[in-house]
Design a binder for these strands. Structure first.
Lengths: 167, 167
DNA sequence: GGCAAAATGTAGCCTTGGCTTCATCATGGG
DNA sequence: CCCATGATGAAGCCAAGGCTACATTTTGCC
């Protein structure tokens, strides 16, 4: 795995680093404020990633309730492409977070909060898809990319999308 | 947590569901193909989420190497807003995946593959930011949203962005 | 040259979100 | 009416990605 050409790696850095970027007029490394700002951005992305799952479930459950009249764990699992056990654990989490409720062997239902979140998520999803379509992305690709993008679009950006689409 | 107005929830659904959507001309529930397609989209988003972390590390390490001449775990951790231990574990994973190499107490370096990935990730990041800016999103918001969005933009969509930006 | 502080690395813990496996419940066909 | 079958739920495993606490190494300062 490493008997190959390793290029100049360790010895060189030993001598060069500090004198190059750090010791001139500029402060060593980066200003703390800049690093902090970047850290905040990453923290933000991480938390969006964390709620993305919940959003997907809520969105799907809402859809199932509207279209099919009921949302059963097996269907949820099938549509998300996960095992039913995984879906059930996620549903338990939704309940813990006050987004859904259910009783054993009955379907899953959304609370007020869950419905509100579903509406918001769906609106966002549609807007992202519409924007991508408007930029010339083919339908299916737009749908697929939106699935990931939608969770990271801030309110500000959402407004910009609306403006661009002329709404 | 629930002593409030729970509205009609469980009893009603018992009677309505099957007769409504399933038993008329249409096939019960959804066509399997549609569900499979949706499942694929979600699987796709999940896998993008999984690689997002690695991409962030690679991108940052590349940046540190270019700007500072070296990438040290502590700096990486600071810029990402995580503890140094977390960063070190992630670096170990990068090494496992052949994207980086390092020896104890020396900095971290990217392999060929790592550098290639970094270039790709950075290009994508810039393009997403530029697009958002072009749509009227303020600089800092664009930068922040891009951090999450960039990992979910397919090649097709990327091309559409380029086209739109007139490149 | 030696020691203290800072950087690095290690170990162990927690939660999430996957999975499989097994037990239990509900329902419909014979 | 009863049982087979399929849906549901529970338990336990695993990897990832956080953390804190502790150990070790480098480094720089005196």
């Amino acid at each position: 795995m490493e008997g190959d050409a390793m290029m100049p790696d360790a010895e060189a850095e030993d001598a060069a680093p500090a004198g190059d970027a750090a010791s001139e007029g500029a402060p060593a490394g980066l200003p703390d404020a800049v690093a902090a700002q970047e850290a905040a951005r990453h923290a933000n992305a991480r938390s969006a990633r964390a709620s993305a799952l919940l959003h997907d479930y809520v969105e799907l459950i809402d859809d199932l309730l509207n279209v099919e009249g009921e949302a059963r764990p097996t269907d949820i699992a099938r549509r998300l492409g996960v095992s039913h056990a995984t879906a059930i654990k996620a549903i338990a989490r939704l309940k813990r977070e006050g987004l859904a409720h259910s009783r054993p062997y009955r379907g899953v239902f959304l609370t007020e909060a869950g419905r509100a979140l579903a509406a918001e998520v769906r609106a966002r999803h549609r807007l992202v898809v519409d924007l991508l379509r408007a930029l010339g992305v083919p339908e299916d690709v737009a749908e697929s990319d939106a699935e990931g993008i939608e969770h990271h679009v801030s309110g500000e950006t959402l407004k910009a999308f609306e403006r661009f689409l002329g709404r």
